[in-house]
Amino acid sequence: MLTISNLQASIGEKEILKGINLTVNAGEVHAIMGPNGSGKSTLASVLAGREDYEVTGGTVQFDGKDLLDMAPEERAAEGIFLAFQYPVEIPGVSTTNFLKTAMNEIRKYRGLDPLDAVQFLKLMKEKMKLVNIDQSLLSRSLNEGFSGGEKKRNEIFQMAMLEPRLAILDETDSGLDIDALRIVAEGVNQLRSPERATIVVTHYQRLLDYIVPDYVHVLYKGRIVKSGPKELAFELEEKGYDWIKAEVETA
Protein backbone atom coordinates (compact mmCIF):
# COMPACT_ATOMS: atom_id res chain seq x y z
CA MET A 1 0.00 0.00 0.00
CA LEU A 2 2.70 2.48 1.04
CA THR A 3 6.27 2.23 -0.15
CA ILE A 4 8.76 4.80 1.08
CA SER A 5 12.16 4.54 -0.59
CA ASN A 6 15.21 6.49 0.47
CA LEU A 7 13.07 9.50 1.44
CA GLN A 8 15.07 12.63 2.25
CA ALA A 9 13.60 15.90 3.41
CA SER A 10 14.89 19.15 4.80
CA ILE A 11 13.66 22.41 6.13
CA GLY A 12 15.73 25.37 5.08
CA GLU A 13 19.32 24.20 5.18
CA LYS A 14 18.60 21.56 7.76
CA GLU A 15 18.42 17.97 6.61
CA ILE A 16 15.93 16.06 8.77
CA LEU A 17 15.03 12.87 6.96
CA LYS A 18 18.13 11.20 5.65
CA GLY A 19 16.88 8.24 3.66
CA ILE A 20 13.81 6.54 5.06
CA ASN A 21 12.80 3.13 3.77
CA LEU A 22 9.51 1.69 4.89
CA THR A 23 6.89 -0.56 3.38
CA VAL A 24 3.40 -0.77 4.86
CA ASN A 25 1.00 -3.35 3.50
CA ALA A 26 -2.76 -3.27 3.75
CA GLY A 27 -3.98 -4.76 7.00
CA GLU A 28 -0.81 -3.91 8.93
CA VAL A 29 -0.11 -1.71 11.92
CA HIS A 30 3.35 -0.18 12.16
CA ALA A 31 4.65 1.58 15.24
CA ILE A 32 7.35 4.21 14.89
CA MET A 33 9.31 5.07 17.99
CA GLY A 34 12.45 7.07 18.55
CA PRO A 35 14.02 9.80 20.62
CA ASN A 36 12.77 13.40 20.55
CA GLY A 37 13.79 15.29 17.48
CA SER A 38 14.59 12.21 15.43
CA GLY A 39 12.19 13.12 12.62
CA LYS A 40 9.00 11.18 13.38
CA SER A 41 6.66 14.14 13.01
CA THR A 42 8.59 15.30 10.00
CA LEU A 43 7.99 11.97 8.31
CA ALA A 44 4.29 12.15 9.16
CA SER A 45 4.06 15.72 7.83
CA VAL A 46 5.87 14.88 4.61
CA LEU A 47 3.47 12.01 4.03
CA ALA A 48 0.51 14.32 4.60
CA GLY A 49 1.98 16.88 2.22
CA ARG A 50 3.13 19.75 4.38
CA GLU A 51 4.84 22.21 2.06
CA ASP A 52 7.30 23.63 4.62
CA TYR A 53 9.45 20.57 4.10
CA GLU A 54 11.38 20.16 0.93
CA VAL A 55 11.70 16.63 -0.30
CA THR A 56 15.26 16.42 -1.55
CA GLY A 57 15.32 12.79 -2.60
CA GLY A 58 13.55 9.46 -2.69
CA THR A 59 10.04 8.38 -3.59
CA VAL A 60 6.76 7.53 -1.90
CA GLN A 61 4.23 5.31 -3.62
CA PHE A 62 0.70 4.98 -2.33
CA ASP A 63 -1.27 2.28 -4.10
CA GLY A 64 1.16 2.59 -6.94
CA LYS A 65 0.63 6.35 -7.27
CA ASP A 66 3.31 8.95 -6.69
CA LEU A 67 2.24 10.41 -3.38
CA LEU A 68 4.77 13.23 -3.39
CA ASP A 69 3.19 14.59 -6.54
CA MET A 70 -0.18 15.12 -4.87
CA ALA A 71 -1.58 18.13 -3.02
CA PRO A 72 -2.46 17.50 0.64
CA GLU A 73 -6.17 17.47 -0.19
CA GLU A 74 -5.63 14.86 -2.90
CA ARG A 75 -3.75 12.68 -0.45
CA ALA A 76 -6.66 12.97 1.94
CA ALA A 77 -9.03 12.02 -0.85
CA GLU A 78 -6.81 9.05 -1.71
CA GLY A 79 -7.28 7.91 1.87
CA ILE A 80 -4.42 9.30 3.96
CA PHE A 81 -5.19 10.79 7.35
CA LEU A 82 -2.80 12.40 9.80
CA ALA A 83 -3.78 12.81 13.44
CA PHE A 84 -1.56 15.73 14.38
CA GLN A 85 0.80 15.74 17.33
CA TYR A 86 -0.09 19.40 17.88
CA PRO A 87 -3.48 20.09 16.28
CA VAL A 88 -3.79 23.74 15.31
CA GLU A 89 -6.36 26.09 16.81
CA ILE A 90 -8.70 27.64 14.27
CA PRO A 91 -10.85 30.41 15.68
CA GLY A 92 -14.28 30.64 14.12
CA VAL A 93 -14.20 27.22 12.46
CA SER A 94 -15.83 24.32 14.26
CA THR A 95 -15.29 20.64 13.60
CA THR A 96 -18.84 20.17 12.34
CA ASN A 97 -18.37 23.24 10.24
CA PHE A 98 -15.42 22.01 8.16
CA LEU A 99 -15.88 18.25 8.39
CA LYS A 100 -18.95 18.19 6.20
CA THR A 101 -17.10 20.17 3.54
CA ALA A 102 -14.13 17.85 3.90
CA MET A 103 -16.21 14.69 3.60
CA ASN A 104 -18.09 15.91 0.60
CA GLU A 105 -14.93 17.06 -1.15
CA ILE A 106 -13.48 13.61 -0.62
CA ARG A 107 -16.68 11.99 -1.85
CA LYS A 108 -16.65 14.21 -4.91
CA TYR A 109 -13.07 13.12 -5.64
CA ARG A 110 -14.19 9.52 -5.43
CA GLY A 111 -17.19 10.11 -7.65
CA LEU A 112 -19.73 9.71 -4.85
CA ASP A 113 -22.79 11.86 -4.21
CA PRO A 114 -22.49 14.34 -1.35
CA LEU A 115 -24.01 13.44 1.99
CA ASP A 116 -27.02 15.53 2.87
CA ALA A 117 -27.40 17.13 6.26
CA VAL A 118 -29.42 14.25 7.66
CA GLN A 119 -26.98 11.55 6.54
CA PHE A 120 -24.07 13.57 7.85
CA LEU A 121 -25.69 14.05 11.24
CA LYS A 122 -26.53 10.40 11.52
CA LEU A 123 -22.95 9.44 10.80
CA MET A 124 -21.72 12.00 13.27
CA LYS A 125 -23.92 10.69 16.04
CA GLU A 126 -22.61 7.20 15.44
CA LYS A 127 -18.96 8.22 15.50
CA MET A 128 -19.43 10.55 18.45
CA LYS A 129 -20.57 7.59 20.45
CA LEU A 130 -17.61 5.57 19.29
CA VAL A 131 -15.03 8.03 20.55
CA ASN A 132 -17.18 9.30 23.39
CA ILE A 133 -17.01 12.94 22.35
CA ASP A 134 -19.55 15.61 23.09
CA GLN A 135 -21.52 17.56 20.49
CA SER A 136 -20.68 20.82 22.24
CA LEU A 137 -16.97 20.25 21.65
CA LEU A 138 -17.59 19.73 17.96
CA SER A 139 -19.51 22.99 17.70
CA ARG A 140 -16.80 25.05 19.34
CA SER A 141 -13.98 26.77 17.50
CA LEU A 142 -11.55 24.00 16.57
CA ASN A 143 -9.13 23.25 19.40
CA GLU A 144 -9.56 26.71 20.90
CA GLY A 145 -9.39 26.16 24.64
CA PHE A 146 -9.57 22.38 24.19
CA SER A 147 -7.71 20.35 26.79
CA GLY A 148 -4.85 18.22 25.52
CA GLY A 149 -7.02 15.11 25.66
CA GLU A 150 -9.95 16.81 23.93
CA LYS A 151 -7.71 17.80 21.04
CA LYS A 152 -6.54 14.24 20.58
CA ARG A 153 -10.01 12.81 20.88
CA ASN A 154 -11.21 15.26 18.27
CA GLU A 155 -8.49 14.03 15.90
CA ILE A 156 -9.67 10.47 16.40
CA PHE A 157 -13.25 11.52 15.87
CA GLN A 158 -12.30 13.03 12.53
CA MET A 159 -10.44 9.86 11.64
CA ALA A 160 -13.51 7.80 12.47
CA MET A 161 -15.63 10.05 10.25
CA LEU A 162 -13.26 10.03 7.29
CA GLU A 163 -12.42 6.30 7.50
CA PRO A 164 -8.98 6.64 5.92
CA ARG A 165 -7.16 3.73 4.36
CA LEU A 166 -3.88 4.82 5.87
CA ALA A 167 -4.07 6.55 9.23
CA ILE A 168 -0.95 8.12 10.68
CA LEU A 169 -1.26 8.85 14.38
CA ASP A 170 1.43 11.19 15.66
CA GLU A 171 1.66 10.77 19.42
CA THR A 172 -2.07 10.64 19.76
CA ASP A 173 -1.54 8.94 23.12
CA SER A 174 0.44 11.80 24.67
CA GLY A 175 -1.52 13.58 27.34
CA LEU A 176 -4.34 11.08 27.42
CA ASP A 177 -5.67 9.56 30.61
CA ILE A 178 -6.13 5.79 30.71
CA ASP A 179 -9.81 5.92 29.75
CA ALA A 180 -9.16 8.22 26.85
CA LEU A 181 -6.30 6.03 25.75
CA ARG A 182 -8.65 3.05 25.57
CA ILE A 183 -11.16 5.06 23.61
CA VAL A 184 -8.56 6.21 21.13
CA ALA A 185 -7.26 2.67 20.75
CA GLU A 186 -10.77 1.41 20.21
CA GLY A 187 -11.31 4.01 17.53
CA VAL A 188 -8.21 2.78 15.76
CA ASN A 189 -9.03 -0.89 16.21
CA GLN A 190 -12.51 -0.37 14.81
CA LEU A 191 -10.90 0.80 11.61
CA ARG A 192 -8.58 -2.18 11.42
CA SER A 193 -9.37 -4.24 8.39
CA PRO A 194 -7.56 -6.09 5.65
CA GLU A 195 -7.90 -3.01 3.40
CA ARG A 196 -6.56 -0.48 5.86
CA ALA A 197 -3.28 0.24 7.53
CA THR A 198 -2.08 2.36 10.43
CA ILE A 199 1.18 4.01 11.37
CA VAL A 200 1.36 4.81 15.08
CA VAL A 201 4.02 7.22 16.27
CA THR A 202 4.45 6.88 20.01
CA HIS A 203 6.91 7.14 22.85
CA TYR A 204 5.14 4.63 25.06
CA GLN A 205 4.77 0.93 24.89
CA ARG A 206 1.50 1.34 26.80
CA LEU A 207 -0.48 2.36 23.71
CA LEU A 208 0.80 -0.75 21.93
CA ASP A 209 -0.95 -2.91 24.51
CA TYR A 210 -4.17 -1.64 23.04
CA ILE A 211 -3.14 -1.20 19.43
CA VAL A 212 -0.98 -4.21 18.84
CA PRO A 213 1.49 -3.50 16.07
CA ASP A 214 2.76 -5.91 13.48
CA TYR A 215 6.09 -4.10 13.29
CA VAL A 216 8.01 -1.64 15.43
CA HIS A 217 10.57 0.72 13.89
CA VAL A 218 13.06 2.98 15.56
CA LEU A 219 13.71 6.31 13.90
CA TYR A 220 16.94 7.98 14.88
CA LYS A 221 18.63 10.97 13.28
CA GLY A 222 16.42 10.80 10.24
CA ARG A 223 16.83 7.11 9.52
CA ILE A 224 15.04 3.93 10.50
CA VAL A 225 17.83 2.23 12.37
CA LYS A 226 16.04 -0.78 13.71
CA SER A 227 12.87 -2.71 12.94
CA GLY A 228 11.37 -5.68 14.68
CA PRO A 229 8.25 -7.39 15.97
CA LYS A 230 6.09 -5.93 18.74
CA GLU A 231 8.53 -7.22 21.35
CA LEU A 232 11.00 -4.55 20.27
CA ALA A 233 8.73 -2.02 21.96
CA PHE A 234 9.08 -3.83 25.29
CA GLU A 235 12.81 -3.85 24.92
CA LEU A 236 12.85 -0.09 24.24
CA GLU A 237 10.57 0.53 27.19
CA GLU A 238 12.95 -1.36 29.38
CA LYS A 239 16.33 -0.26 28.08
CA GLY A 240 15.73 3.15 26.51
CA TYR A 241 17.49 4.20 23.32
CA ASP A 242 21.11 4.26 24.40
CA TRP A 243 21.91 0.79 23.20
CA ILE A 244 20.43 1.56 19.80
CA LYS A 245 22.32 4.82 19.59
CA ALA A 246 25.48 2.93 20.47
CA GLU A 247 24.76 0.35 17.76
CA VAL A 248 24.30 3.13 15.24
CA GLU A 249 27.45 4.98 16.22
CA THR A 250 29.62 1.86 16.04
CA ALA A 251 28.14 0.67 12.77
Binding site: P72, F81, P87, I106
Partner: peptide, 17 residues
Protein backbone atom coordinates in the same frame (compact mmCIF):
# COMPACT_ATOMS: atom_id res chain seq x y z
CA UNK B 1 -2.62 22.90 5.84
CA UNK B 2 -4.77 21.34 8.54
CA UNK B 3 -7.93 21.81 6.50
CA UNK B 4 -6.25 20.62 3.32
CA UNK B 5 -5.04 17.51 5.12
CA UNK B 6 -8.71 16.77 5.78
CA UNK B 7 -9.51 16.94 2.09
CA UNK B 8 -10.53 20.55 1.58
CA UNK B 9 -8.92 22.14 -1.48
CA UNK B 10 -6.60 25.08 -0.88
CA UNK B 11 -8.87 27.82 -2.23
CA UNK B 12 -11.77 26.58 -0.23
CA UNK B 13 -9.69 26.21 2.91
CA UNK B 14 -8.51 29.79 2.57
CA UNK B 15 -12.04 30.98 2.01
CA UNK B 16 -13.28 29.11 5.03
CA UNK B 17 -10.62 30.74 7.16
Amino acid sequence: FYLRSRGIPKDEAQMLL
